[in-house]
Computed example of a mutant assay.
Amino acid sequence: MQRQTRTVLLGAFAAAALTALGAIGWVALTPTPAQTAEDHMPTPPQPPRLADGPEFERCLGLLRNDPEAARAFAEAWGRAGGGEGARQCQALALLSLGEPALAAQRLETLATQSAASSLARAAVYAQATQAWLMAGEANRAYGAATLALTLSPEDVDLLVDRAVTLGSLSRYNEAIEDLDRALALDPNRAEALVFRAAANRHMDRVDLSARDIERALQSDPASAEALLERGIIRQLRGDTVGAREDWQRAITLSPNSPTADLAAQNLALNEAGPARR
């Protein structure tokens, strides 16, 4: 299933800084409203969708550039009988406007009540998953991701989404199980390899983590997330110079992103030395 929502998770992925550098968790999934609206707008997928037609396309166009106007349009469209398309666009506008919990609740309700196909409903549950993560509600995100997988059990993106929620809950073994399934379906999926590397590192399986990161970089040499994680692994192994190079490269490849922020934090802590950690 093709989903632009994938960028929310990848753009926000922060593979966790070293314990030695001051651990800051497995993922950072709280982009600001401005980041969400401008850089990571989770617009609906290509077919199957809940709705189609000129009104829906107009709402999506507004959503990308003016979420407040999209919300107003969706509300008016809904009053005129816009149905599920209007409800979905309105929920996504709320997400762009910095109300992820309200957006998540509406998306989840919509996916539950919709008469659309299983795949279309799964895509809406996936959007609810990411909105719950952005709201800091990992347990609710896990529930939505599980409902999505019930409808589309072999969707690689959905498996990765749920693995992220499990990692947010420190349930790393379960996250690895989902990522193993995802990689069995798509062995070269770089983000799945990066997430599995982070999970294995949290389980003190650094050799497995390093192996996955090298595979991820073979698949996508420009993956800032993979470089962030490889820098952490290199630092754990005592390769401070290599770690610094990876983090600097991650910043260059993905400036003004949560990944770049974490890389910069790691660089600063690295430069400060053991006395400042």
Results as ranks from 00 to 15, higher is better:
13 F>Q: 12
17 A>G: 15
17 A>Y: 01
20 A>L: 15
23 A>C: 00
28 A>M: 14
28 A>F: 15
34 A>T: 14
38 E>C: 14
40 H>K: 10
41 M>K: 02
41 M>E: 07
42 P>G: 14
48 P>W: 12
53 G>R: 05
55 E>H: 10
56 F>W: 05
64 R>I: 06
67 P>L: 00
69 A>F: 03
72 A>L: 04
73 F>M: 04
78 G>V: 02
80 A>W: 04
84 E>T: 03
87 R>Y: 01
87 R>I: 00
88 Q>T: 03
90 Q>Y: 04
93 A>G: 03
95 L>I: 00
97 L>W: 02
98 G>H: 01
101 A>R: 08
103 A>M: 00
106 R>K: 05
106 R>D: 10
107 L>N: 05
108 E>Y: 02
114 S>C: 04
115 A>T: 11
117 S>R: 05
117 S>I: 05
118 S>R: 15
120 A>K: 05
120 A>I: 06
126 A>N: 07
126 A>H: 14
127 Q>H: 11
128 A>D: 07
128 A>H: 02
133 L>H: 09
133 L>Q: 13
134 M>H: 12
140 R>G: 06
144 A>W: 01
147 L>R: 14
147 L>Y: 11
148 A>K: 09
151 L>P: 13
157 D>Y: 11
157 D>E: 15
164 V>Q: 00
166 L>P: 02
167 G>M: 13
169 L>F: 01
170 S>G: 08
173 N>G: 13
173 N>P: 08
174 E>T: 13
175 A>S: 14
176 I>L: 02
179 L>V: 07
184 A>N: 07
185 L>W: 00
185 L>Q: 08
191 E>L: 06
191 E>Q: 10
194 V>T: 07
195 F>D: 08
200 N>H: 13
202 H>D: 04
204 D>L: 11
207 D>A: 14
209 S>C: 11
210 A>T: 12
211 R>C: 04
212 D>N: 11
215 R>I: 01
215 R>K: 09
219 S>H: 05
221 P>S: 09
222 A>D: 09
222 A>Q: 12
222 A>S: 09
225 E>F: 06
228 L>V: 10
229 E>F: 00
231 G>T: 07
233 I>V: 15
233 I>H: 05
235 Q>T: 01
235 Q>Y: 13
239 D>L: 02
243 A>Q: 03
244 R>P: 01
244 R>I: 10
247 W>V: 12
249 R>T: 15
253 L>K: 06
253 L>G: 06
258 P>F: 12
259 T>A: 15
260 A>K: 08
261 D>Y: 02
266 N>T: 11
266 N>Y: 06
267 L>A: 09
269 L>W: 10
274 P>G: 12
276 R>M: 12
276 R>G: 12
